[in-house]
């Protein structure tokens, strides 16, 4: 498969908007076994100063999955999904998003590097998340590692 270089930096993924739905937050809490009132009971969340149920720390990643095809850039770059692993993930938070918020996401590839003579290629995709009026909510970076000689080739 292809060996990627720094020319990939700046590659943009489609912008999109998504509403944070209360039901989805509750389902996510169920999936991770979270039962703390602040994440499942809107009144409890409000009494703690949140506008509604807060978006848990890693859920912004899941919201990006709601765009038409979150794996579109891997398809376009002809990266076989079976050779891809999630190598790292980071989030930087500015505001806590809550149920009912409409969030805008835009994404780009911010770094590309390789190890072991290109056997492992790393691509870092960053999402910028903001409220509709433009105030920043968070940035989060997904680092994927591609096994260049994986069986999926």
């Amino acid at each position: 498969m292809k060996i990627f270089g720094k020319e990939l930096i700046g590659y943009q993924t489609p912008k999109f908007q998504v509403e944070v739905e209360k039901g989805k937050l509750k389902l996510f809490s169920k999936a991770i076994g979270e039962m703390a009132a602040v994440y499942v009971d809107e009144e409890a969340a409000k009494s703690l100063g949140y506008r509604s149920l807060p978006v848990p720390p890693t859920f912004l990643f899941c919201l990006e999955m709601e765009r038409a095809d979150p794996y579109d850039w891997m398809l376009e770059l002809e990266i076989p999904l079976g050779n891809v692993l999630h190598a790292g993930q980071s989030f930087t938070y500015h505001e806590t998003a809550c149920a009912g918020d409409i969030l805008q996401f835009s994404g780009e590839i911010i770094d590309v590097y390789s190890k072991k003579n290109n056997e492992l290629q790393f691509i870092v995709h960053r999402n910028y998340v903001c409220f509709l009026e433009g105030a920043a909510v968070a940035e989060f970076d997904r680092t994927v590692v591609i096994q260049t000689r994986g069986k999926g080739n």
Binding site: G49, P57, S90, F91
Partner: peptide
């Protein structure tokens, strides 16, 4: 992997309110 990270997030939010978390990098 994100499920494992979500568990680590639960350890943090069990300890401190989520609004205190500025960065989470693994």
């Amino acid at each position: 992997g994100m499920l494992v990270m979500a568990y680590a997030g639960r350890m943090l939010t069990n300890w401190m309110p989520q609004s205190a978390i500025r960065n989470f990098d693994i």
